[in-house]
């Protein structure tokens, strides 16, 4: 780990000023990803601005039924919160499916949004990776890419976003609030993470000097009937091969509300909008679910080591929707 200056600012204004002043400064939250990457030499900030002491730790109910989540709320606190468990169970389940209890106790909401990929070639400094070193090439495409993307990948990068929490946030139309010396802005989560294209090293819309201060969830009655299903290579403490966040509202046998997002399939949490459109108004049947999944996954492209994820995603979408339909949400 490169030696760095450690700064603990007293408030948000000081924090964003501190990062704006140093081109190689980074915000530090729970450290569960950044400290690891710093020790690996992949991240090498010269200044670390520890924001964990800032007063961004509240979970508040918004007028109209939404929820505002401070960016420094720990993942475990968010998952355990009554409002989340009852109104957005898919979000609680998604968080609880990620990492381990220890890591969830450390990780912050803001940090979780900015997690970097687990691609094996990104982590190995000896390998070619366009994310780490633009223009170096992508060793994963012809190498090991079991965790790699089946949607929205490019010739330059097949990495996936590793967060579970973000998959639920994508399904829930969350909005990210960010602050910098230039002011405060709101970024819909749907557009927060970027697909790789030719610039896989640019992973989000967030500028380097912007601090995530909050995430807002709009009111969503359908979200009360929701689940998160994560499929992985062991029963716990592993990243997703495929995950599905699904909310479903059915009246008189027809789908009247649906939210669907996928994890483990793309460089961003994948909101399955096409599937949602196909489902709205359709009969709530296994056939409809399968049809919707097929529409969403029609553009999916597999590589030799991850093509199975197309079928797996299809099946997991159907299974998760079926479970919400037959057993209700996780709340």
């Amino acid at each position: 780990m490169r030696s760095f200056a450690y700064v603990r600012p007293p408030d948000v204004a000081a924090a964003v000023r501190a990062v704006a002043a140093e081109p190689d400064a980074k915000f530090l939250g729970g450290g569960t990803n950044l400290v690891d990457l710093m020790r690996e030499g992949i991240e090498r900030p010269g200044t670390v601005v520890d924001v964990t002491g800032l007063p961004l730790q509240q979970i508040e109910e918004l007028p109209g039924g939404g929820v505002r989540i401070g960016a420094l709320v720990r993942n475990s606190s968010l998952a355990a919160h009554r409002l989340i468990r009852t109104r957005y169970p898919m979000l609680a389940q998604a968080i609880l499916s990620g990492a381990s209890a220890q890591l969830r106790n450390m990780a912050t909401v803001g940090g979780n949004l900015l997690q970097r990929t687990r691609c094996l070639y990104f982590y190995d400094g000896a390998a070619a990776c366009n994310k780490r070193e633009p223009g170096a090439g992508c060793a994963a495409r012809d190498g090991f890419h079991r965790g790699g993307a089946i949607l929205g990948a490019s010739g330059a990068c097949v990495a996936t976003h590793p967060s579970d929490m973000c998959v639920a946030l994508a399904a829930l139309d969350a909005v990210v609030e960010a602050e910098s010396v230039r002011g405060v802005r709101r970024i819909p989560l749907a557009g927060f993470h970027r697909l790789p294209g030719d610039t896989p090293h640019i992973e989000t819309e967030l500028a380097a000097d912007e601090l995530i201060t909050a995430v807002e969830l709009p009111a969503s009655p359908v979200a009360a009937h929701s689940r998160y299903r994560k499929v992985r290579d062991r029963a716990s403490y592993a990243f997703a091969l495929v995950s599905v966040a699904a909310a479903l509202e059915v009246r008189h046998g027809a789908v009247t509300g649906v939210r669907l997002a996928l994890g483990g399939v793309a460089a961003k949490p994948w909101r399955a909008s096409k599937a949602e459109q196909a489902l709205l108004g359709a009969p709530a049947t296994e056939e409809s679910f399968r049809h919707a999944a097929e529409i969403e996954l029609a553009p999916a492209e597999g590589l030799p080591g991850n093509a199975f994820k197309i079928e797996l995603a299809r099946r997991t979408i159907v299974a998760t929707l079926r479970q919400v339909l037959t057993q209700g949400g996780a709340a």
Binding site: S76, A79, A92, S236
Partner: peptide
């Protein structure tokens, strides 16, 4: 302690 504080887990059937 987490269990005592009513923290759920990924296998908890009914979160609410």
């Amino acid at each position: 302690a987490e269990h005592g504080d009513d923290v759920p887990s990924a296998v908890t059937e009914h979160l609410a």
